[in-house]
């Protein structure tokens, strides 16, 4: 839990875009129920401390930098060093202060809880 919050809060170390890394779009799955939206993104080979999640003015930005150490002659290379980057618009019903993030096995998992006022409510009739 502690770690999750750290990832969310580390807004300062958003990676600066550099010219020598290709930008890749991480593939995502999005799930939703009445309580929350879940977002799972593939970022294979990215170290946990190079992942950042930033929420600002209704925009959710995911970034992750993959650095590879390798030597020898290249035979083929489909992987390369990349900077994963993707931005989503999130509905204002998301409680941005309570977003949780987890990064495991190269997959970033976000839980975006909906704020109490956005949850469906049934009104009792007197």
């Amino acid at each position: 839990m502690q770690e999750r919050n750290e990832i969310v809060k580390s807004q300062e170390n958003i990676e600066q875009k550099t010219n020598n890394r290709a930008v890749a779009i991480p593939l995502v799955d999005i799930y939703e129920n009445e309580e929350a939206i879940l977002l799972h993104a593939d970022m294979p080979g990215v170290a946990k401390d190079r992942v950042s999640v930033n929420i600002d003015q209704g925009k959710l930005t995911l970034t992750g930098v993959r650095e590879l150490r390798r030597d020898g002659a290249v035979q083929w290379d489909e992987i390369g060093e990349v900077e994963y980057q993707r931005t989503f618009s999130i509905p204002h019903t998301i409680d941005a202060g309570n977003v949780e993030a987890e990064f495991k096995e190269g997959v970033l998992k976000l839980i975006l809880p909906k704020s109490a006022s956005a949850k469906p409510r049934s009104v009792e009739i007197h």
């Binding site: 002659a73 290249v74 035979q75 290379d77 489909e78």
Partner: peptide, 12 residues
């Protein structure tokens, strides 16, 4: 997706 690198004593 994969990559292969060839060093003198090994493949990675």
């Amino acid at each position: 997706r994969t990559s292969m690198y060839d060093s003198s004593d090994r493949l990675v």
